[in-house]
Structures are given as C-alpha cells and as structure tokens.
Design a protein around this nucleic acid. Structure first.
Length: 137
DNA sequence: GCCAACGTTGGC
DNA sequence: GCCAACGTTGGC
C-alpha cells in the first residue's frame, strides 16, 4: 500500500466538506498538472493519504482513503485529465503543520516542504510514520 | 496583497 | 527544440 498527500484550500473544499460526503467520498477533480495526475494514476484502492489545508491552516488535518482508482475527470472534456475518488477516514488528533514538517529532520525531504506547488504528492512509508507520530496516532 | 517558484504555451 | 511570456499556486 502506498501513501499520498492531497492539498486543498479549505475555502474551496476543506476537510469538513470531505467528511460530509461520507463513505461514498468525493472525486478529486480539477487537477490540471501532469505530475499530480501521474501520481493519481499510481493510486490503488485502499491507499491512504494526508488531507492538507493549503493557504489557510497550512497543516495536514486528516487521513483519507482512495475509494476509486483513476478515471476521467468529470469537470472537463479533455481526456488528458483523470482523477481518483477519496473519502475521509479520520481526523488527526493533532494536525501536523508545514512549519513542523520543515523543522523535523526526518521530514526535510518531503515533497510538501520542497515542492510546495505540487497538489498531489507521494509520501514515503518513513515519512508517513513520522507524520502519524507527530499527529498523535 | 505580494512575490517567488514553477509549469505551460506559443512564436520563432 | 529553444526560450520568453504568461498564468497559477501557495507561502509569507
């Protein structure tokens, strides 16, 4: 199983919005970046991801799960763009902020820290474990 | 609101 | 195929 990180602006679509969608989850649509799309194509059902609030909060606030693998993005006719569906699994007892990730030596190579503009990122097993530890899980 | 970083587009 | 121009993202 692989781990990922999904970025969203809470103003547009936040953690609470995903929770409100329940077990059916929500299409992670609107991605118009090849790297992010390629990451989504790699995802398998059951993979877990961090739900990160960009701009406001700047912290990972919850864990979500891939419930549908890559399929055409329903918000565009352009066949280049695909997306997965994710559902909320559980909130993090203690959200993990960008600031924390920056000062944590074990997280210095995270895409979140180095490649801030990528909206869908892979997270390594080791990074995931550290984030869970910081989150109080 | 500004600006740096980055990706994409389009002219040549 | 290069590179300048432009648009977008996201931290501050």
């Amino acid at each position: 199983m692989a781990y990922w990180l999904f970025k969203s602006e809470p103003d547009v679509f936040g953690w609470d919005d995903l929770v409100a969608k329940g077990d059916q989850g929500e299409e992670w649509d609107g991605v118009r970046n090849y790297q992010a799309r390629n990451n989504m194509r790699e995802m398998k059902k059951g993979d877990l991801g961090l739900f990160y609030h960009s701009n406001q909060g700047k912290e990972a606030v919850g864990i979500c799960e891939v419930v549908a693998e890559a399929h055409p993005d329903s918000t565009t006719d352009d066949s280049r763009w695909e997306c997965v569906d994710v559902k909320a699994v559980r909130p993090l007892p203690r959200p993990v902020s960008l600031e924390q990730a920056k000062v944590e030596p074990r997280l210095k190579d995270m895409a979140l820290v180095n490649n801030t503009r990528l909206s869908v990122q892979p997270v390594t097993d080791a990074e995931w474990a550290v984030v869970m530890e910081l989150a109080g899980l």
